[in-house]
Amino acid sequence: MHPSESELHKEAGNVLFSHEDYEGAIKEYTKAIIKDSSNPVYFTNRALCRLRIHKNEEALDDCDKALELSKDNMKANFLRAQALLALDRPNEALRSSKIAYELALQTRSPSSQAIAQTVLNAKKRRWEVQEERRLERESALLNEMLDILESNYARKIEAALNEDFAVEHEKQENKEILEYERDEKMKFLKKTFERSDARYQKREVPDWLIDPISFNIFYDPVMSKSGQSFERSVLLEHLKNHSFDPFTRENLTEADLRPNLGLKAACEQFLEENGWAVDY
């Protein structure tokens, strides 16, 4: 059987892609799509090229089309997550990357490790956005409190200066006392805010949230018979060529693994408050 015209364009696109000629490859995939718009591979291939040259909106568009053609397309979901992350839409990126991860596990795709990392990156970005918002609110609140203190003391000083029965040097003395009080309170207020920030800046991940092979924080931990936990995709990489528990060297196969849901939840909660831990 001769390859169809659309397949020939795809092949030409793949060659250009491998030479990092992304613009050229996009043209070929576009021709393939014109000949046959029912093959999701043409869309996902074009999406990857577009991602490489940071045409993220267009890449996203290609992923959506590929997903219309095949809903459970792992690659389309994975690329979609990457495009959304590049577009700084971490919540949607998180959703797509989680779907891609499940599909990758089902198909035993070697991409599952990279997808798990994308899930974590999306979580990190989501945390960063929240963190920026928190810092903005905190500094706005601090400034407002400082203003209130200042105007409060301005009133008190004004009253002290207008005290009817006081002599002039007493008025000045009272004013200085009030000013001192005001400055001390402002210093204290700023310090209190700083201290609460220091709590947020304690950047340590407990060892038990870290996969002992990749040294990454867990996303999908599984437990071996010995009770040790590992990141699933990482341990599967090990089990490809070996069949022992990395800690005990006891016989271990994929069928022995159980998800560690408690640890997974603990990591999720930790990341909610410590998104930086993804790059730890």
């Binding site: 070697p110 490790q113 990279a114 798990a116 990392q117 092979i213 990749s214 040294f215 990454n216 995709s233 990482v234 990489e237």
Partner: peptide, 13 residues
Amino acid sequence: MIGGFTKRLGREL
């Protein structure tokens, strides 16, 4: 390097 192992040596160091 495959997958997510790039970070491991950095952390070991």
